[in-house]
């Protein structure tokens, strides 16, 4: 493949890498696994890049490939439930008004999301990324109505994880 293509890919990927980092954060529990999945997604994106015609945004195209890699192509499975993930990001929360209660809620919420299965995580990911139900249904290959129903069920499930007794 030509150097130009390679250069254009590397540049666009560097600019859009946070999409991949976010998916890695959802689907892995430690730094090594994060790097490993990041690499596999990068390889898959590069392999598919010659067919990328630019009729959609690089980021939109990358979402699909990255999610597909995490859910379907990536072989390694998680080893343990994540609990340390949250530590690394506290520094930037210090900038704004520090709210311990909010912090605690967020921590529990992240832990609850980690307990979801791969497909549920994909839905939550796209929801957090502000994707509409049309795009969610197109990406996963399910109907729009059912994507909506499933999302409501996931919300219910998260609620249950956060508050198992329903008080």
């Amino acid at each position: 493949m030509s150097d130009n293509l390679e250069h254009s890919f590397v540049k666009q990927l560097r600019e859009n890498q946070n999409i991949i980092h976010k998916i890695c954060r959802l689907y892995t529990n430690d730094d090594d696994a994060h790097k490993d999945l990041f690499q596999e997604i990068t390889i898959q994106l590069w392999k598919a890049f010659p067919k990328f015609r630019g009729d959609s945004k690089f980021s939109t195209w990358a979402y699909r490939v990255a999610l597909n890699t995490a859910i379907t192509l990536y072989r390694k499975t998680k080893r343990s439930i994540n609990t340390v993930e949250f530590e690394g990001r506290q520094h930037f929360l210090n900038d704004v008004e520090y709210d311990y209660e909010e912090e605690e809620q967020l921590k529990l919420m992240y832990q609850a999301v980690y307990q979801l299965n791969d497909i549920e995580k994909a839905l939550i990911f796209m929801y957090l990324e502000d994707k509409d139900y049309h795009e969610i249904s197109e990406t996963l290959g399910i109907s729009e109505v059912n994507a909506r129903v499933k999302m409501n069920r996931i919300k219910g499930k998260l609620k249950k994880i956060l508050n198992p007794l329903g008080i």
Binding site: Q17, R25, Q39, I43, R75
Partner: peptide, 22 residues
Amino acid sequence: NSFVQVSETEIYKMIHKKSSSI
């Protein structure tokens, strides 16, 4: 802001590695 950014050099290296997909 919380992700360690991967450099272009690292991405170049990555795309020449072998995939381990199923």
